[in-house]
Simulated assay, not measured.
Amino acid sequence: MTDTSVHRGRAGRLVAALIALSAVPVLAGGLRLAELTGGAAATPDNARFLAAPVPIVLHIIGVSAYTVLGAFQFVPRLRRGQPGWHRVAGRLLVPCGLVAALTGLWLTFFSALPEHDGPLLAAFRLVFGTAMAASLVLGLLAVRRGELARHRAWMIRGYAIGLGAGTQALTQSAWHLIAGTPGELARALLLGAGWVINMVVAEWVIRRRPAPLGS
């Protein structure tokens, strides 16, 4: 087996794993959109979305496009072999990511918290939503200055935060299997753990190997 085929195999597995994690927010978002457009009755869980549907619709569309399309930015053959594709995709991904982050912040600030949420989870959402938006802006500024390694690092960080819902599904599922339904504090910590895990992995990826010139 050649080195090229090995690298392609690794890239394929990475993209498959990222899309699998992306499937969680995409499917959940699709169900929420169906609920909003299907005339669902108001419940404590969806009342805040029915009252102001535009931010949640934009959030779902932004997150879905950002996480799925963003997975392909990690394919070296596309990133280096087809730089035009990489740039075009990036020009779409940055606005989608910013829409996802900013609408998430809007929902945290201005919509009523459901019963199972609390101030700690709201704080986590504010911190990571702000960090995601900042990462995308810093990544964009870096590439405009020609600082490709910094651009790569900030974009990886932003994507890791945007993919948080996928990892959060795993942390919550593990808790459900072991201890049942989490309380308010446990749920906040489980969701926070999803973001932290992704950030740790992102920093490992960034530091594991310098980005090749032109990536």
Rank of each mutant, 00 (worst) to 15 (best):
A65V: 15
S22L: 02
G30Q: 07
D45V: 13
V26W: 07
V54E: 14
L36N: 09
G70N: 03
V26P: 00
T37L: 15
T43D: 09
Q73Y: 11
L58Y: 11
S22F: 03
P53K: 00
I56P: 13
F74E: 06
G39A: 02
F74Y: 14
P53E: 00
A23Q: 11
A40C: 07
A51Q: 13
L50V: 06
S64N: 11
E35P: 05
D45H: 10
V68G: 02
A52L: 10
I19A: 13
N46W: 11
A41D: 15
A20K: 05
L33N: 07
P83S: 12
A41N: 09
L33Y: 13
Y66L: 07
F72P: 05
L78T: 05
V54M: 09
Y66F: 15
L31C: 03
A47C: 08
A41K: 14
F74G: 03
P25I: 00
A71V: 04
F74N: 01
V24G: 01
V54D: 13
V68Y: 11
A28P: 03
L78I: 04
R77N: 09
V57C: 07
G39Q: 00
A51C: 08
Y66W: 15
L69K: 09
V75C: 10
G30K: 06
V26D: 00
G39W: 01
A65M: 11
P83F: 12
L21V: 01
P53S: 01
A65T: 04
T43I: 11
T37G: 15
A28S: 14
G29A: 07
A20L: 14
L78G: 02
L69V: 13
P25Q: 00
S64I: 02
V26F: 03
E35V: 06
I61S: 04
S22T: 00
L50E: 00
P44E: 01
R79M: 12
R80T: 04
T67N: 08
G70L: 05
L21I: 04
L36A: 10
H59Q: 08
T37H: 08
F74I: 05
A20D: 12
V54G: 03
S64M: 09
Q73N: 03
V63G: 13
